[in-house]
């Protein structure tokens, strides 16, 4: 099997995992779910770091592209997780 096909396998199986995990999420938490998946989808930061880190010069085209990619993904990571935490902390049971 080519490396590409292995990745396809991983992708398809992950879709099934996602399907089962997400149906288990309580509808009351759908907004926090969106916020946290937002933060998690910023995992593209891994790609962004590889691009930015490969730049020989900070001011080169790759450097600038990489910086903005890391910057945007980082906003998502911190923004997404913090706002999720803020929301979840508000959910309280009856005293």
């Amino acid at each position: 099997m080519s490396p590409f096909m292995i990745t396809v396998y991983v992708f398809v199986l992950s879709c099934f995992i996602g399907y089962h995990v997400i149906w288990g999420v309580t509808p009351a938490l759908h907004t926090p779910l969106m916020a946290v998946t937002n933060a998690v989808s910023a995992i593209v930061v891994v790609g962004a770091i590889l691009v930015a880190g490969s730049a020989h010069q900070t001011s080169s085209l790759v450097g600038v592209i990489g910086f903005f990619a890391v910057f945007l993904a980082s906003i998502n990571i911190f923004g997404g997780f913090v706002v999720t935490q803020r929301m979840l902390a508000m959910f309280k049971r009856k005293k």
Partner: peptide, 23 residues
């Protein structure tokens, strides 16, 4: 492959500030 830490750290830090403030 990651050699240029200046850009990476700058991007992460700037994003953290903006993201946390927004949130």
């Amino acid at each position: 492959e990651v050699k240029n830490y200046t850009i990476v750290i700058a991007g992460l830090a700037a994003g953290a500030v903006v993201g946390i403030l927004l949130a």
